[in-house]
């Protein structure tokens, strides 16, 4: 039924994996991947994610060129994953915003003109719900954020979703889905949060212990594949079952923490952004203070499928791939157990 699929954002890990999975599906005639830079497996030859027979077209989404790609290839399914979650060191926030918002506008404008497009799947994020002390503990898709995001990724995603809603209204014949993903976790994921957990010392907000929720990259790819080949219009939360507290994540990783007052966190954030590795944007600090959990019951019912890995299992897989495990304190306890345990056996 599905013939030609356009995948945006294929130079990024999840985008490349989705494109690869769709290219391996014999029911799909063509998979066209677009992005501003070629995926790593094409440039370095062999490295990165296997893309199979995916055809790559280099397009800057902010330009109207995308319309030509869609028109030329008779594309019927668009999987839009070209959302940047954090400003890069070189390009900065202005580029990120243009890439996310203007890019989506151009893509949807092209889809609206197209006579062949009949399905649009957009990757969004649970960041649209924000994080605050006034929010309910668990968000469902109908929840309205109490504090509307006014900066960063959450604002971009909120605006992207608004354009997607507008598009769905103007083209009721097209099946439009928006997927709000929790933070991705897994061996190949490179996000502000995975970079955070990879640091040697983890700063935490003093006096706060947020609830975090992850979705494993394998499950994320499977959800995107299902949405690309089947029709499931609507908005869906996607998250692994259960939640973890930041303190719990940190204990499992075995890394030491430094509790920092939230005001000082902001200063550190500016310094860290200068170095360019870790992002401590205001929304990141809000997440690190109040956390966020969502209910993915709607997705489970719609797909009759549940993410294979829970939040905790996804995080453990990430830790294992990075070779992180319980450090000093755990060794001390195990040593005590053997000393006393040995004494007990007599």
């Amino acid at each position: 039924m599905t013939h030609t699929v356009l995948v945006t954002g294929v130079s990024r890990h999840i985008g490349a994996r989705v494109a690869g999975v769709l290219a391996a599906d014999p029911d799909i005639d063509r998979v066209i991947g677009v992005d501003t830079v070629p995926p790593s497996s094409l440039t370095r030859g062999g490295g990165g994610v296997a893309l199979g027979r995916m055809e790559f077209v280099r397009v800057d989404l902010r330009s109207p060129d995308i319309a030509q790609v869609i028109a030329a290839a008779d594309i019927d399914t668009v999987v839009h994953m070209s959302l940047v979650s954090a400003p890069s060191k070189s390009a900065g926030r202005t580029y990120m915003k243009e890439h996310n918002v203007i890019g989506t506008m151009q893509l949807l404008a092209a889809c609206q003109r197209s006579a062949t497009v009949r399905k649009v799947v957009v990757r969004s994020t649970t960041a649209v719900y924000g994080s605050s002390s006034h929010d309910p503990a668990v968000f469902t898709e109908d929840a309205e954020p109490i504090e509307v995001a006014n900066s960063g990724y959450a604002k971009d995603a909120t605006e992207v979703e608004a354009y997607v809603r507008g598009f769905a209204r103007r083209r009721p014949d097209v099946s439009v889905s928006a997927l709000r993903f929790a933070n991705f976790m897994g061996p190949g994921v490179d996000s502000p949060l995975t970079r955070y957990f990879a640091q040697p010392v983890l700063p935490t907000v003093l006096g706060f212990d947020p609830r975090l929720q992850f979705v494993h990259e394998d499950d994320g790819v499977e959800v995107l594949r299902r949405f690309a080949v089947e029709d499931h219009p609507g908005i869906f939360n996607v998250a692994g079952d259960g939640v973890m507290l930041l303190s719990q994540c940190v204990r499992r990783s075995g890394r030491p923490t430094v509790p920092v007052p939230s005001t000082a966190f902001r200063v550190i954030g500016d310094l860290a952004r200068g170095v360019g590795r870790v992002d401590f944007s205001p929304e990141q600090i809000a997440l690190m203070s109040y956390g966020r959990a969502v209910d993915s019951a709607r997705l489970v019912e719609e797909l009759d499928w549940r993410p294979k890995l829970t939040t905790a299992a996804a995080f453990d897989d990430f830790l294992q791939s990075r070779g992180l495990f319980g450090g000093m304190p755990l060794t001390v306890i195990d040593w005590l157990a053997t000393v006393w345990g040995g004494g007990m056996k007599r």
Partner: peptide, 8 residues
Amino acid sequence: AGEYEVDE
């Protein structure tokens, strides 16, 4: 070790 569960 963080080997415990919390609810949502």
